[in-house]
Design a binder for these strands. Structure first.
Ligand SMILES: [Mn+2]
Ligand SMILES: [Mn+2]
Ligand SMILES: [Zn+2]
Ligand SMILES: [Zn+2]
Lengths: 152, 152
DNA sequence: TTAATAATGATAACCGGTAGCAATTAGTAA
DNA sequence: TTACTAATTGCTACCGGTTATCATTATTAA
């Protein structure tokens, strides 16, 4: 914990940013969940222990964390953005998402990552050449109904 | 044009829905562009020729068209939804998207669709089994910088 | 310790999208 | 054609997620 904080501290310092209490707390929340939390959900968890930290601060820092490459922002089709710590021990390193359109549950999966990486490489190199594009990221999501929602 | 309208008319009638002027106009806009328009952009094009058609009507009908499977709704990371006619002569049938995070340009591509369909099938069957999921849809998007935005 | 300034928190504003509702219109049956 | 009925429209007000403002506070390097 202490050493992790040390690591975060350095990453902020290297950019001329400060390692504030709100940032510490937000990172702690994100590191201790396997969920894909919205800004408000993060705020509520933060608020429980630190009621003086504001919602705006959470929003602002999520943007900052995304810019720093610490957090990834997703859009799963409900009306808000959801966030995930990139280096989170509770999750597979490189994974994608399976989303239930009924109950909105989100499942991380990393099956067939080898095939996928191969496919992605192919597409990326072809599209890079064809369109002079510099591809930096991708989104792959599957939508459907989970067991419960199928039955209901 | 006339026969196409006839076809639309039938699809609406089959569901007990009416083929109204706003719907005609919205479909016309969507069929005559290769772009991925937002609701407001569609509204503006509609508004030029039919200033009496309201924005709310456009929003409502886009939902209807999506439910009917005539239109697909996307989210590319700018703050709005974008829509595309599924059967549009100006576009490849089954395609995915390349998005410039700089200028927000969206490129349709259908390279490597065979490989992709194979990969998707594999993942879908594996995930369906593993999580008892009924997969109905997927999103695959590549993000990066286009030629111009790279240079700038 | 202190000065410089990054960051915060409260509030108000913004913006894409919806709900409510009276007025209109498309489709059907006479 | 006409009349009827329910679907649809176009206002307007409203909503929820997110962002701008700005005076105040807290972090950090010197
Ligand atoms: Mn995840
Ligand atoms: Mn497209
Ligand atoms: Zn579900
Ligand atoms: Zn660009």
């Amino acid at each position: 914990m202490a050493k992790t904080n040390q690591k975060w501290h350095e990453r902020f310092r290297d950019r001329g940013l400060r390692f504030t209490q709100p940032r510490r707390v937000i990172l702690d929340v994100l590191d201790n969940t396997a969920d894909h939390l919205s800004a408000e959900e993060i705020y509520m968890r933060v608020h429980k222990k630190y009621p003086n930290i504001g919602l705006t601060t959470v929003y602002r820092n999520l943007i900052t964390l995304e810019r720093m490459g610490i957090v990834t922002k997703f859009h799963f089709g409900d009306g808000c953005h959801r966030f995930e710590l990139i280096e989170n021990k509770k999750k597979p390193d490189h994974h994608h998402h399976l989303v239930c359109t009924g109950c909105k549950r989100i499942i991380d999966y990393d099956d067939f990552m080898d095939e996928e990486i191969e496919y992605i490489k192919k597409v990326e190199s072809a599209l890079s050449r064809k369109h002079s594009f510099n591809i930096t990221d991708h989104v792959i999501q599957f939508y459907g109904l989970c067991k419960k929602c199928k039955a209901a």
